[in-house]
Design a protein around this nucleic acid. Structure first.
Lengths: 258, 258
DNA sequence: TTTGTCCTAAATATCTTATCAAAGGGATCG
DNA sequence: CGATCCCTTTGATAAGATATTTAGGACAAA
């Protein structure tokens, strides 16, 4: 008892104060949900930076006036949501998580699977992301980006006869284009989508399809190198609409047979 | 103890293997992480459908050979990831979660905040989503959707003189448009973005700005009612590019002053 | 003296066991 | 038909044992 319990930590409870609730409509049914909500609210208000130490399990439990196990429940939830990180040891405790776009992509992918999103919804979202990304790529790509694009294209050309490997290379090329946008949100979303879309594309692949894809990739690189955002947008839009119609057509045929 | 512990539940452990061995993904540091991993693996193997009951906390703890609190830790994490749902009461227990796009939006928003995504990246992503959604809305909107659009427009017109309230109404209108696309991925992403973008738009609002926004909204409804996807896409693209340049301009000015 | 290694101690999360409270659904009784 | 009781299940608290990580001191070698 030499150290006051609230001498440590970041004064979480004091900060919550007025209802800056973005998610919660006030009353939470369970105690741990309430704690989760408070911490998340504080975090979202931007008063805590990634890497900040919030305190130990025990000290947080004291601050929030709940038992350690209830606090643990809340902390496990926050940990799973990627809001906090937990370290064990003498310098351990609860820390605000570093942002992690890899985790963002993974989380989106899991949720997409759980929700059971339909093929058309996925393809339309892919179109949305890639069209925008292509335009940005044509505006923002630097020489390293363009080099990466050429390498991805060469790899795809090399694998044009192997359906599965080519699909992987083609998605990688598309990923490079999205990466050229230098937009982390678009990039994370594309990665999440590509995980879910991969099996679809593998199924519809063939050497003939692959050659059309390569031709498209060449044209897109030309647009990006020429710094023509509108041309890149239109090219990608047209191409992906075509791919979509083919995929949905295949889907209809495939399901009619079952 | 009258009932055998494994008589209940869906035989999770039997699917994975004996409870004490075959920790599938190799070395997991903590016991609860092992449990999490096993359950998630089984769930994503597709043998369990949303709504299926996995058992009670206690029975699952027995199946996995851990204490109830450890099981609770694991279940909390899975619940936070949206993989399972927990119900209290005599017919309660652990269930495979129904998909929940609300949770998806929430998770994305939190991660965006943590990663510290920049304004331009957010605005570009918004453009990507809304342009696509507007085109889909013009293709797919039904009469109920169009009625909702008109109501949202009327609400915005009513609040044209109150900057903060109008901003809310305008974002609501945009949300209606995205909703008209009937695409849950786009909808969830827009919801996530709007939470983060809200403060930006509130700052840049004024009656004059509001009147331009209303004019845009009227034009967009006209495109959607006329079933003109390309016109809707171009309208939204032009409008949001304008908004973006204004926001970034304001941002530069604002930060130059600080 | 300086340096490097090993060991201990403290702080911390992890895990266990036990107990009671609250909520929810079903069966029983009026 | 309705109200009440009861059983099951999660929610929450408490106290304690165990494992892990790191700081810092002890000790030996150069």
């Amino acid at each position: 008892m030499q150290k006051a319990p609230d001498a440590e930590g970041s004064g979480l409870t004091q900060m919550v104060g007025p209802a800056e609730r973005l998610w919660s409509s006030g009353k939470q049914s369970t105690l741990s949900a309430n704690v989760i909500d408070q911490i998340r609210t504080v975090l979202f208000a931007g008063r805590l930076a990634p890497g900040d130490r919030l305190g130990s399990e025990a000290s947080l439990a004291l601050q929030f006036g709940v038992s350690r196990m209830t606090m643990r429940d809340a902390l496990r939830s926050l940990q799973a949501s990627g809001v906090i990180e937990v370290k064990v040891g003498i310098k351990g405790g609860i820390f605000v998580a570093e942002g992690n776009s890899e985790r963002l992509a993974e989380t989106i992918a899991i949720q997409l699977k759980l929700i059971g999103i339909g093929t058309e919804e996925l393809l339309d979202t892919q179109i949305a992301i890639e069209v925008m990304a292509a335009g940005l790529a044509a505006s923002n790509a630097n020489s390293a980006d363009i080099k990466a694009l050429h390498e991805a294209l060469a790899e795809a050309e090399r694998l044009v006869d192997d359906a599965e490997e080519f699909t992987w290379a083609a998605i990688n090329f598309h990923g490079c284009v999205v990466g050229c946008s230098h937009n982390r949100v678009l990039t994370a979303q594309f990665r999440a989508l590509s995980h879910v879309l991969m099996p679809l594309y593998v199924r519809g692949s063939s050497p003939e399809v692959a050659r059309r894809a390569v031709a498209f990739q060449r044209a897109l690189i030309a647009c990006i190198e020429a710094r023509e955002p509108d041309a890149a947008r239109n090219l990608v839009y047209g191409r992906l609409q075509f791919v979509k119609s083919r995929q949905l057509g295949d889907l209809a045929k495939g399901e009619a047979g079952e």
